[in-house]
Amino acid sequence: MSTRVTGTAFITGSGSGIGQKTASTLAQNGISNLALLDINTVRLESTRNVLTARFPNVGVEILTADVRDEASVEAAVQKIVARFGGIEIAVHSAGISGKTPDSDENSLANWQKVIDTNQTGVWLCQRAVVRQMQKQEDRGGRLGRGAIVNLSSMFGISVPPPEMGLFPYTSAKHAVEAITKYAAKAHAAEGIRINAMCPNVVDTPMTHNAIKDGLFDKTLDQTPMGRCGTLEEIADSILYLVSPMSSYVTGASLVADGGRTA
């Protein structure tokens, strides 16, 4: 058994960062089609151009949509199915950091923005993909109907120091853990696997300035490996979760944090 993957992969937040790198990693490992969703059209187009040049045999569909909007998510899934026939893999990585003051100083508007994107957005995408996978033929064996990965965080299973100002973010990521585990139990018998990916700080366009400004210095000081994770390391971990290599893994939280929460 290998980490080779087949079929169509639906990846949110794929205009940059973890989502973008995951798309490339899946293309390297056998995926036939990529459906890339992001709110930023320019970044999506750039990602598509890079992927089609590097992997000319992989079909690429880009979808500009807001994961917070139910109609947008449903329309995106319908468009993917119309072009590619189904969805075998989904990676829900769209998210924002939403740095704020401590919980009692946080505004309702900021709270709602982060929760709508990082929590409700994941659930809306998961729900739409599960409904589609339920319609698909069970491929049996170690393939089933499909595999889903929701991007959580090491702060989805732990709590950062309050001075980091990640209260809404951490709250949403804890919810992603529950969303993942609840659905994994509900749909395991249908041949649908659902897992969460929990990375440490990764140098992405969303986190780069904060890393540079020292926001995560304390966290990295408490990380035995003493460094951020790389995009390649997280994408490879996601590849494992969506490949037949992890066919008996569902409802799990794969922690890739350099030992920070050990």
Score class of each variant (00 low, 15 high):
178 A>E: 10
70 E>W: 05
87 I>H: 02
90 A>M: 01
167 F>E: 10
141 G>M: 00
162 P>W: 15
76 A>R: 14
65 A>P: 10
99 K>M: 12
84 F>I: 03
111 W>E: 11
110 N>S: 11
160 P>H: 11
114 V>Q: 06
170 T>F: 02
81 V>H: 06
180 T>P: 01
129 V>W: 00
179 I>N: 03
145 R>C: 09
179 I>G: 01
122 V>K: 00
75 A>V: 07
102 D>Y: 10
185 K>T: 10
153 S>E: 01
110 N>W: 05
159 V>C: 09
148 I>N: 02
114 V>M: 09
94 A>E: 00
175 A>P: 01
139 R>T: 11
139 R>V: 04
86 G>P: 04
77 V>W: 02
131 R>W: 04
155 F>Q: 12
158 S>N: 13
83 R>T: 10
90 A>W: 01
76 A>Y: 02
151 L>A: 05
171 S>W: 11
99 K>F: 15
87 I>E: 01
185 K>S: 13
75 A>L: 07
164 M>I: 04
128 A>F: 05
180 T>W: 01
81 V>K: 07
159 V>W: 10
166 L>Q: 09
160 P>I: 11
124 L>S: 12
68 R>A: 14
155 F>K: 07
175 A>C: 08
173 K>P: 08
76 A>D: 00
156 G>A: 00
66 D>H: 06
184 A>N: 03
149 V>E: 09
116 D>M: 09
103 S>G: 13
176 V>H: 02
167 F>N: 11
169 Y>V: 08
129 V>F: 00
176 V>A: 01
90 A>I: 02
155 F>A: 11
93 S>Y: 02
72 S>A: 15
92 H>R: 03
81 V>P: 01
82 A>R: 12
80 I>L: 09
138 D>E: 07
150 N>C: 04
112 Q>W: 03
